[in-house]
Design a binder for these strands. Structure first.
Length: 1044
RNA sequence: GGGCGUGUAGCUCAGUUGGUUAGAGCGCGUCCCUGAUAAGGACGAGGUCACUGGUUCGACUCCAGUCACGCCCA
């Protein structure tokens, strides 16, 4: 006995049972340990932050990260899957600041970095329990017990090793970076934070004149919205290809962009003459500094006109004031042009003593006095206001300033060629990312700023003397213990900052620099750090790097994909991964971003509980989101997966179990499934084709094309194989055919559960558990993935069946046209084709068609012109290349050919056509023939097959039609009464003479079909009878259940 | 502003090296079927393949440009 299966199923409940089973049997562990000695398939899991709950993006990536390892496990590989947690970084620090109601560096240092960091440590794993629950509920098998955490000492130690390896390769240097900076909080802000704080504000927009050195009374006009940066002006930038004008006024000369001229000179009397020149002609000019503070920098190359490609003429004067200490473009330009950098602003955003007139003043507040002074010195030409979007501190709402911050870098540009080279070895899904988005990003790669002026992160392992001359980079705990003479158990800032290293050169003690590492450096080091390489697992790691597979979202192009690549290339000159699936964004139904605030998407837990994790998994994976396209999440879509795939599959399974139990049939597990029944052979062959399709797609990491064929197969299984085979399962005698049907269906269901296991692990397991026999592995996930061996494959049979289906489709079409329901038997159907091969094949499968279409016989013929007119057109693919421009004219001639000519050609004749005076030879391969059914006949055609229906009804046929109609009514009554399928019944009915005669004529057929033991005609309507209309005859039927 | 991607039926998506009737599912309408099905089948309506130009005998497909949307970067 199989466990009885209801066709009313609660998917979520079924899945929870499976979870319990897996937990009890420790199935996941077994799938690993059983393959411990097998070849390894290496998977790396990117670490999420556990400070928030998982959303659809995580569920999607998690599903992909489950399907591939499950598949590879079934292919015989050992696939270690360790979950990881990203523990460090700003998001955690913000959470803690909010929890502790403090804000900014000053307050953190006041309370103590040790307390702050320990607070971070205490909350960072806040939601790990919820994550584990949801990830597990989604059916993802991943090892949470051996998870890696970026804050663990072993992990951090490996990061130090990575850092030192880079250091020793000369890939680390200290430089400056222009960052958004909050003067009140005394801290630089990340891009992410900056983006949160844009607000529209009014700022001064001023035009200043810079006096040129070599032309008397001549000035360049520049424009700025940050007057306070003017004392730090070091250069003026123009675009070398932009057209400028030299404007002569009465007593002075001005230079500005031609495109901006009209903004400044609205009346002709303002100037005397205007001449044009290119920006390149301005490049050698030098000018007088606006302020005296850095006048000495002129010797170092300051105060000249330089070229910059970022100059535009959209606003201002087409000349950009350059203060390399206060703007990113300015800074880079400064480096390129060797312009000195000055940054006379302190940590609190006040001018330093160098700017003696404004020393100690808040820079923003100094705008006004600076303006007043410029005006007084007649350097201010124009003044207005601009309303623009400007970043503010998201915490304290202070306008941010951009300023140079000392930062440590990885020399990415130096290894760029190797990065590009390594990337070529990676198989990206979708492919275009390799040379597209990711490749382009690598080509434009800049040095990577890896230090953060924060607290909760892996400290940069650099100790330095007070004068900065002596530096030690530490690469391990042991090394630090030796150098410092202290025992160390934790590597966080508050612990290692206390440690000092004695100088080797008599420079007193070396102290650690204050910065911590960018958390992207930490996650990029994950391949090494999760294994505590090279301190442990050295050989294993080196023989199992790079990973075979990773999968994350498109947002990781600049994130994890990039940092993995940079570090692995820097260390080993290899990519860190061989195959990568990049998923797109999961958006709300309306195409907008999912937003908790707007509640524009259903809660994942609700979706899982309503439709099941299998449905959600299959919905996501059978969509272009696994190829980086966006997915507009639709609950209806999940429902449809359920309806189109999962419910039919479940019902096929439930059908099988129901009848197998009735017959007491059980698979012995040893049998193959050889059968001489054509349906059996066909479905097995289709199954084999399915396995081939899935395997091919999966080996190519193409999940969508791996998931898609299930839909078609399940349709074939339920709506053709089972529907056509139904009666084979009801036959009361246990003949061979019935045995073959059971064997085949059980084989197909078991194999299907194995093919589907990676995608819908719950339902696959549920089916497998019930159908498996003793000798088989105890879980579908411990099975091998079906290997197509070809012995069950019969592609010709698959094509034949497709032909049969076509004929059936045509027959149904004709019946529908003539309003003849299938229950009404018809005398015969004609199948006509000039191709005897096709006729022969259809004849072989004649019984299926006769049964399906309820016709007494099929008649075959070759004379298609009796039923249809022939029309021809050229096969352009053949004739196009041959005829070139003539093909259009030829098409016209061919279209006019009569049926006889076409028949001749089809029979093998070669015809010579005259096309625009040229001879064109045409044979049967050159044309495509269309069959147009003759009007007035019941004829339909598709491809080379024509079908015609005999629609005349004899009294015999009418009587059989009535009998079948009668059966149908009884079946409906059985169903309404909710009888068991094996329930025997007694029938009393009353009707007119015609029905009575038909029923009595087919009484044996009727009784067999309806499991009726006793069928009686009665004179008056029985008490429990239902009234029916049978083809226009009225009739009353009573159905009474009887014991066997 | 730059890079990448997307644009095909009301909706979700297929569409192979260019080949002449552009497909599927859902939804809608009509009919059929039901002794597994929250079902199933057939038919029908529904398309300027975003737009413009080019290459070609022939373009949804290749090329150039434009527009819209998305993501990333600035």
């Amino acid at each position: 006995m199989y466990k009885p299966v209801s066709n009313k199923i609660d998917f979520a409940a079924m899945e929870k049972d499976i979870l319990t089973l897996w937990a009890k049997e420790d199935t996941f562990q077994k799938s690993m340990t059983e393959r411990k000695s097998a070849s390894e398939f290496v998977f790396y899991d990117g670490p999420p932050f556990a400070t928030g709950l998982p959303h659809y993006g995580h569920l999607l990536a998690g599903t992909i990260k489950d399907i591939v390892p499950r598949y590879q496990t079934m292919r015989g590989h050992y696939v270690d899957r360790r979950f990881g947690w990203d523990c460090h970084g700003l998001p955690v620090e913000y959470e803690v600041e909010q929890d502790l109601e403090i804000s900014g560096k000053t307050e953190i240092e006041k309370m103590g970095v040790d307390k702050f960091n320990e607070a971070c440590r205490s909350i960072v794993l806040r939601y790990t329990r919820e994550w584990r629950e949801i990830v597990t509920r989604m059916g993802r098998w991943v090892d949470f017990d051996r998870d890696y955490k970026t804050m663990e000492p072993t992990y951090m130690e490996s990061i130090w090793w990575v850092f030192k390896a880079l250091w020793e390769k000369g890939l680390i240097y200290e430089g400056s970076k222009i960052l958004p900076y909050c003067p009140r909080c005394s801290t630089p802000l990340s891009n992410f934070e900056t983006n949160q704080g844009y607000r529209d504000v009014a700022d001064p927009a001023i035009t200043i004149r810079f006096k040129l050195d070599n032309e008397p009374n001549a000035y360049i006009l520049a424009w700025t919205t940050t007057p306070w940066t003017l004392p730090s002006n070091m250069a003026l930038a123009v675009g070398k290809d932009i057209t400028y004008v030299r404007v002569k006024e009465k007593d002075a000369v001005y230079y500005l962009a031609k495109a901006r001229f009209a903004e400044y000179y609205k009346k002709p009397e303002q100037y005397e003459s205007v001449t044009e020149l290119k920006g390149s002609e301005l490049l050698r000019l030098t000018y007088e500094p606006l302020f005296p503070y850095f006048a000495d920098k002129k010797a170092e190359g300051a105060f000249r006109v330089v070229n910059a490609d970022f100059v535009s003429t959209e606003d201002g004067t087409g000349v950009v004031h350059i203060a390399p200490g206060f703007g990113e473009d300015d800074y880079r330009l400064g480096l390129a042009e060797q312009i000195p950098v000055v940054c006379p602003v302190d940590e609190e955003g006040r001018f330093t003593a160098v700017i003696k007139d404004y020393a100690g003043q808040d820079v923003k507040k100094a705008d006004h006095p600076i303006l007043a002074r410029l005006k007084e010195e007649k350097k201010l030409v124009h003044r207005s206001q601009i309303l623009h979007s400007y970043p503010h501190c998201w915490r304290c709402d202070t306008p941010l300033i951009y300023r140079a911050i000392s930062t440590w870098f990885v020399k990415v540009e130096q290894i760029k060629d190797r990065l590009i080279e390594a990337n070529k070895k990676v198989h990206w899904v979708p492919e275009h990312l390799r040379d597209g988005r990711f490749g382009k990003w690598l080509e434009g790669a800049r040095d990577w700023a890896i230090s953060r002026n924060r607290y909760w992160g892996t400290p940069l392992p650099i100790w330095r003397s007070k004068d900065g001359d002596e530096m030690v980079c530490v690469g391990s705990i042991e090394e630090l213990e030796q150098l410092s003479g202290q025992k160390i158990s934790d590597l966080h800032k508050h612990n290692v900052d206390k440690l000092e290293i004695p100088s080797r050169n008599g420079k007193g003690t070396l102290k650690r620099i204050p910065e911590v590492l960018d958390c992207w450096f930490e996650s990029g080091a994950m391949p090494y750090a999760q294994a505590h390489y090279p301190f442990e697992n050295k050989e294993h790691f080196e023989s199992h790097f790079p990973a075979d597979f990773i999968a994350e979202g498109l947002d990781q192009t600049r994130g994890w994909f990039y940092t993995l690549m940079v570090l692995s290339v820097a260390l080993f000159d290899k990519p860190a991964f061989k195959n990568v699936i990049v998923n797109g964004l999961v958006l709300a139904k309306d195409g907008k971003k999912m937003s908790k605030r707007l509640k524009n998407y259903p809660d994942p837990v609700h979706v899982i509980n309503s439709y099941g994790a299998d449905a959600l998994r299959l919905y996501m994976v059978n969509s272009p989101v696994v190829r980086t396209e966006d997915l507009c999440f639709s609950e209806d879509g999940v429902k449809h997966v359920l309806r189109d795939v999962l419910i039919p599959l479940w019902n096929a399974y439930s059908f099988f179990v129901t009848y197998a139990n009735i017959d007491g049939w059980h698979g012995d597990g040893t049998s193959g499934c050889s059968s001489n029944n054509v349906l059996d052979r066909w479905i097995r062959s289709s199954l084999e084709s399915l396995a081939v399709k899935v395997t091919t797609a999966m080996d190519n990491y193409d999940l969508q094309n791996a998931a898609r064929p299930f839909v078609g197969f399940i349709d074939d299984l339920t709506n053709w194989y089972i529907r056509r085979s139904r009666r084979r399962f009801w036959k009361s005698q246990d003949d061979d055919d019935k045995e073959q049907a059971y064997r085949t269906l059980s084989y197909v269901l078991i194999q299907l559960s194995r093919i589907a296991a990676p995608f819908i692990p719950f339902m696959s397991e549920s089916i497998y558990q019930n159908l498996r026999s003793k000798g088989m592995p105890e879980s579908v996930h411990l099975c091998g993935f079906p290997v197509p061996d070809g012995s069950n494959r019969d592609e010709e049979l698959e094509e034949q069946m497709a032909e049969v289906m076509t004929v059936v489709k045509l027959g149904r079409l004709l019946r529908a046209e003539k309003d003849l329901k299938i229950r009404q038997p018809l005398a015969s159907m004609h199948v006509v084709s000039r191709n005897p091969e096709i006729l022969r094949r259809i004849e072989t499968r004649m019984d299926i068609i006769i049964d399906e279409l309820n016709v007494r016989k099929l008649e075959f013929g070759v004379h298609e012109t009796e039923l249809a007119d022939l029309k021809a057109k050229p096969d352009f693919k053949r004739m196009g290349p041959r005829l070139g421009p003539l093909v259009k004219a030829a098409a016209g001639v061919i279209a006019k050919m009569d049926g006889k000519t076409i028949e001749n050609i089809l029979s093998g004749a070669k015809i010579s056509l005259s096309v625009n005076g040229q001879n064109v030879e045409v044979d049967s391969n050159d044309i495509i023939v269309e069959r147009i059914p003759r009007k007035g006949l019941v004829v339909a055609s598709e491809g080379p097959v024509i079908v015609a229906l005999e629609t005349e009804l004899s009294s015999d046929l009418i009587q059989e039609g009535l009998a079948r109609e009668f059966v149908n009514k009884i079946q409906n009554m059985r169903k309404t009464a909710d009888f068991e399928v094996t329930q025997r019944i007694k029938i009393n009915f009353t009707s007119d003479a015609e029905i009575k005669e038909a029923v009595m004529k087919f009484i044996d057929y009727l009784k067999t079909e309806t499991l009726c033991l006793d069928l009686n005609f009665v004179q008056s309507k029985p008490a429990g009878a239902n009234d029916w209309d049978i083809n226009g005859h009225s009739c009353a039927i009573e159905v009474i259940p009887v014991k066997k």
